[in-house]
């Protein structure tokens, strides 16, 4: 792949949610409301006509206030949500770090979870066996490897999750605010690993409220505002606009 190819193409993507006035979880409620004609839906537009491309080796930062649609956009990119309209094309294998340790089963030990979570992320069992020590070392959990993860602290949880997800070099890495967990030493370690990945040519999409980190790491920035694309372009320009708004 040369550096001009689009790794991610997002075309006119919109996402609408049917927000019910109140959530209806039971059949009885549903029937009662249906008969009364009270099934109210509020159409909520989480993303409105978003179009952009990400090239290989780009480091895209997504900024915006709470509720701007950042996480929804990431979920669409990761394939978890399918957009109401529009198209998303992704070339290459993608590791989403939307929430560290999302695939952990609290009752299983760290060892068992490394295999379960690794396979969920699409690694081979053999590969995981080979890299097992590397994962454990990076997470610094050598003494706790046979402890059920429900007894882990949130920092240990995050370390293990980050360590599993970044053991390979994916083509695209999606990072959602996950680096804010863990102590500063581990954060530095994570940033170093991300920097290594950048050198290897991994395309990274980063969501953060930490403008310092966006300015340090990213090359391009997408600014979302209430589901609309406010601006997209080079880091310095957009960051300047965003800070002044």
């Amino acid at each position: 792949m040369d550096s001009n190819t689009n790794v991610i193409e997002v075309e006119n993507v919109s996402m609408h949610f049917n927000l019910m006035e109140e959530r209806i979880d039971s059949l009885k409620e549903y029937i009662v409301k249906f008969i009364k004609g009270k099934l109210l839906y509020n159409d909520f537009v989480a993303l409105d006509n978003i179009t952009f491309n990400v090239q290989q080796k780009d480091l895209l930062g997504i900024v915006g206030l709470n509720g701007a649609g950042k996480s929804t956009l990431l979920k669409i990119l990761a394939g978890v949500l399918s957009p109401t309209t529009g198209k998303v094309k992704v070339n290459g294998n993608m590791v989403p770090l939307i929430e560290v340790g999302a695939g952990f089963d609290p009752d299983l030990t760290a060892r068992e979870n490394i295999f379960l979570n690794g396979i969920i992320l699409g690694y081979r069992k053999k590969f995981l066996r080979e890299h097992f020590d590397e994962i454990v070392d990076f997470a610094e959990l050598n003494d706790f490897i046979d402890v059920p993860v429900k007894n882990f602290s949130s920092g240990m949880y995050a370390r293990l999750g980050f360590s599993i997800a970044t053991v390979v070099r994916p083509d695209i890495l999606i990072v959602d605010e996950v680096l804010s967990v863990g102590d500063f030493r581990f954060q530095e370690k994570c940033e170093r690993r991300i920097n290594d990945m950048i050198k290897d040519g991994v395309t990274i999409i980063l969501v953060s409220h930490d403008m310092g980190m966006i300015e340090r790491l990213c090359t391009k920035v997408l600014w979302l505002d209430h589901g609309k694309m406010r601006a997209y372009g080079d880091k310095d320009e957009i960051c300047e606009q965003y800070k002044n708004s």
Binding site: V80, A102, G103, I120
Partner: peptide, 9 residues
């Protein structure tokens, strides 16, 4: 659910 919300499977 928590898993399905985060990773595509």
């Amino acid at each position: 659910g928590s898993l399905l919300k985060k990773v595509y499977i």
